[in-house]
């Protein structure tokens, strides 16, 4: 009979999953977002790292990452900016009047590409969910969020890598 080897490692009662600040920094999130913009939105589409208040009417898109670190990568911008992004992605294929489905698709894909590359930096194994969109982003723990504020074509946009809110109440093993 084989007795399993005891590694001696124990998870202490006070152990928490790793904080996002220990795993990724703002500069990396910014770089990932810039690469996604250049490739998908356009070669001349720069993101200026300046914070500015978001308008009242915003749209968010996000993908969930589930693994040693669990949370969401959330993209938020004004609705007009989301429409402009959708037109930039679709270019000559953009219809005269954009459907909500097109905007959800474009915003979802941007979150998906940024999220996929954020996931690659975080410890694995982890699983990436399908993109979702909504007027209200999923709640995150403010204390465990890596957030980047940028301007695209002068309009504010945020990218946030945020732990899930419910983990705040997680009962440790």
């Amino acid at each position: 009979m084989t007795v399993p080897t005891d590694s001696g490692e124990r998870r202490r009662a006070g152990d928490r999953p790793p904080a996002i600040a220990e795993l990724i920094d703002e500069a990396t999130v910014q770089e990932i977002t810039e690469q996604a913009w250049l490739a998908l939105v356009g070669e001349d589409e720069v993101l200026v790292p300046l914070p500015a208040p978001l308008p009242a009417d915003t749209l968010s898109s996000w993908v969930e990452i589930v693994g040693p670190w669990t949370g969401s990568v959330v993209l938020t911008c004004g609705r007009d900016t989301a429409l402009a992004l959708t037109r930039a992605l679709l270019r000559e294929h953009a219809p005269e009047v954009l459907e909500e489905e097109d905007v959800d698709d474009a915003m979802g894909e941007l979150a998906n590409v940024v999220g996929g590359n954020v996931k690659a930096v975080l410890p694995g194994p982890s699983v990436l969910g399908l993109p979702e969109t909504g007027t209200t982003p999923p709640p995150g723990r403010e204390a465990d969020t890596c957030r980047v504020d940028v301007l695209w074509r002068g309009e504010p946009l945020t990218v946030s890598v945020q732990s899930h809110a419910e983990r705040e109440n997680e009962v440790p093993l």
């Binding site: 998908l40 679709l90 097109d102 698709d105 474009a106 979802g108 894909e109 998906n112 399908l130």
Partner: peptide
């Protein structure tokens, strides 16, 4: 691709 936008980007 389930994203029409991404299909357009791949084709482009």
């Amino acid at each position: 691709d389930d994203s029409r936008v991404m299909r357009q980007i791949v084709i482009r």
